[in-house]
Amino acid sequence: MKLGRYELTSAENFTIFEFISNGPNGKIPKVIQFSSTRYENVFNLAFGDKHPETGELDDFAISNNKDTEKILATVAASVYAFSENHPGAWVYATGSTDARTRLYRIGLTKYLEEAESVFEILGQRYFEWEPFEKGKNYEAFAVKMKNSNLEV
């Protein structure tokens, strides 16, 4: 599998990333952040558009830049980079809308085999956690990089 993705820029601690979506609607700066939740070692993944002039962030923006797969691949790459630099951390993700959550599910489903070789992947369904399965709707997802010492 070889997915195109955008070049990522990161803060030194790999919790903030930026990239620029490039498509028919122009160049749209995007920001990804991994924030500490109230729970130890659980980080929330959020991303959205950054207004090029004001710097204001909008995680509900629909940019229609015809690059959804490339954006998802770029966000996935940021999860890899974050997880590499924060061993043992869970990354929690849910969409800002149901449609976005479905989009995450579709992305995970498409590349599940490869993702599972590196991450533990759980789905949250009716407020219970279970191993992610294709074809099921989830409210949220959590991924954690497997311990390479155990998996190699």
Partner: peptide, 25 residues
């Protein structure tokens, strides 16, 4: 294969202790 080459931009460090998406969090 998956971990991309990432350029570090120290300018982004200013967001270290700021929650950019408080509603999502």
């Amino acid at each position: 294969k998956k971990v991309p080459a990432i350029r570090i931009d120290k300018e982004l460090n200013k967001y270290d202790n700021i929650v950019l998406f408080p509603e999502k969090l």
